[in-house]
């Protein structure tokens, strides 16, 4: 769809890129300013760099603990999801058995399930298991809720890959587990990276379940941690802004590294929505 007037396209597209990037870059730049500089001069380059903002936010605001907790939740959930969903997807995509379609559709149905529909029983269940205020509760909930999209994506991806290689491996006497590990997993790596990325982001950013399941400041993840931080320090922007930057950086960095493959998967039909 090449046309004669790409200039207008470029201008409009660049304008929207600014609308997206400017606030985020400004957040980073403001986080280095002193308090009067933040209020009176938004959108300006800081005149002096206040690294101490970061040190203060880290120590006073407990941000360090929140970051470590969130990293544990996100990484463990991603590992569980990648392992469980790829194994399940392989069987759903490649074996015919009774209940195959039912299991697949049950996973799919989770995509449209409002979280309120499971919130109260999960709260009650975690209370009975004495897991309130434990990171494990949030890890389990994210691992389970991440399965829907991951199974969906991987089943579609595996179905799009020709069967030849696996059949050759099985004929050579490899077990199903070896075939899965040595043939299927390498083949679906592009899709796995998208599964890992999306689940890392949603576990890191997750707000609702930490809100209802975690209330001990030592067991909080960033989303709820920052909420309590604001409750405590209100509009001390010189502490809040560095905290926000530290909370935001991990997902943005992970995304930028994985973005090429992700965009390709999303726009070139690996995921058919």
């Amino acid at each position: 769809m090449q046309t004669k007037r790409p200039v207008i396209s470029y201008v409009l597209l660049a304008l929207y890129a600014l609308i997206v990037l400017l606030p985020l870059l400004d957040l980073v730049s403001m986080s280095f300013k002193d308090l009067p500089g933040i209020i009176s001069h938004p959108f300006s380059i800081p005149t002096s760099i206040q690294w101490s903002n970061y040190a203060d936010a880290w120590s006073e605001g407990n941000i360090g603990t929140f970051l470590v907790n969130t990293a544990i939740v996100a990484v463990v959930s991603v590992v569980i999801i990648v392992v469980c969903s790829s194994m399940a997807a392989y069987v759903i995509a490649r074996f015919e058995f009774r209940g195959n379609q039912l299991i697949y559709l049950t996973f799919l149905a989770g995509l449209a399930l409002p979280i309120q529909m499971i919130a109260v029983p999960l709260f009650v269940l975690m209370k009975q298991l004495h897991m309130l205020d434990s990171l494990l509760s949030v890890i389990l909930v994210y691992s389970a809720s991440g399965l829907s999209f991951s199974v969906f994506l991987l089943v579609n991806f595996i179905r799009s890959v020709p069967k030849d290689l696996e059949e050759a491996a099985l004929l050579d006497g490899a077990s199903h587990f070896q075939t899965f590990y040595r043939v299927i997993l390498p083949l679906v790596r592009p899709a796995l990276s998208t599964v890992a990325l999306l689940n890392f982001v949603s576990a890191w950013n997750g707000f609702f379940f930490p809100l209802i399941l975690l209330s001990d400041p030592n067991q909080m993840t960033v989303a709820v941690g920052v909420l309590s931080f604001v409750g405590q320090y209100a509009t001390q922007w010189n502490l809040l802004l560095p905290a926000l930057v530290m909370v935001m950086l991990p997902t943005v960095i992970v995304f930028i590294f994985a973005s090429r493959q992700f965009i390709r998967n999303m726009t070139e039909g690996a995921i058919k929505l």
Partner: peptide, 29 residues
């Protein structure tokens, strides 16, 4: 769709960034 593919890819990455920024950050910003 009307611009060069390389530029288009980069812009798609940029436009997606806010989706990975935690809601708590977007909200307070």
């Amino acid at each position: 769709m009307r611009i060069r593919e390389t530029a288009s890819r980069w812009l798609q990455v940029i436009y997606f960034i806010p989706m990975v920024v935690p809601p708590i950050v977007v909200a307070y910003l």
